[in-house]
Computed example of a mutant assay.
Amino acid sequence: MADDKLAGERNLNDQIIDEFRRNEGKVGGQFEGFPLLLLHSTGAKSGEKRINPIAYFEIDDRIYVVGSAAGRDASPSWVFNLRAYPQASIEIGADPPKTVTAHELPPDERDRIYEIVVQRAPGFGEYQQKTDRVIPVFELALT
């Protein structure tokens, strides 16, 4: 059962990635009009290359991603990947991939940025209410 769910999520991710690349970073469905990037990371356990479509926020000329997993009790796998291997790359729009270093925000900075995220996308406030874990926020600094 868990394998079926994982396969379904990977299939959905693959569809979003294809649509993203065909349409210069724009996708429809539940993500229509929302800024997405493609995060290329290294698997924390497997060491394999991974690609995940992720909502991002540009705040004070910096790029942030939020490990909300829609309020589930476990962080998405890409969070563990960035913690293990902070060197990654991102695709935004039609631009070629850019190398980044991921920095997980410390609590005070995380809270300040998360408040801005919730102002822009109120669903993220609901995600935090659904879980006891503190939803992590990463800055993706261009290198």
Rank of each mutant, 00 (worst) to 15 (best):
I113Q: 05
Q129H: 12
F57V: 07
A84W: 01
G93A: 06
E104T: 06
T101A: 08
S75F: 02
R62L: 10
K45A: 13
D4V: 14
N11G: 10
S77I: 10
I54T: 06
I135P: 02
A44F: 08
R72Y: 10
V134D: 00
I17D: 03
G33L: 04
A88K: 04
L6V: 15
G8M: 13
R10N: 14
I135R: 02
I135D: 03
D18N: 13
D4A: 14
Q128A: 07
E115H: 11
V27A: 10
R22C: 10
K130R: 15
T99Y: 13
R120G: 11
R50S: 02
A94S: 15
D108C: 08
G43R: 08
F57G: 02
G123E: 12
L82I: 03
R133L: 09
L6Q: 15
A141M: 11
K26D: 08
Q129E: 00
W78K: 01
D108I: 03
V66M: 08
R110M: 10
K98C: 00
I16W: 05
P136S: 03
A74T: 15
D14L: 13
K45N: 12
Q15P: 07
V79E: 00
Y56I: 04
E109Y: 09
Y56A: 09
G67T: 01
A44M: 05
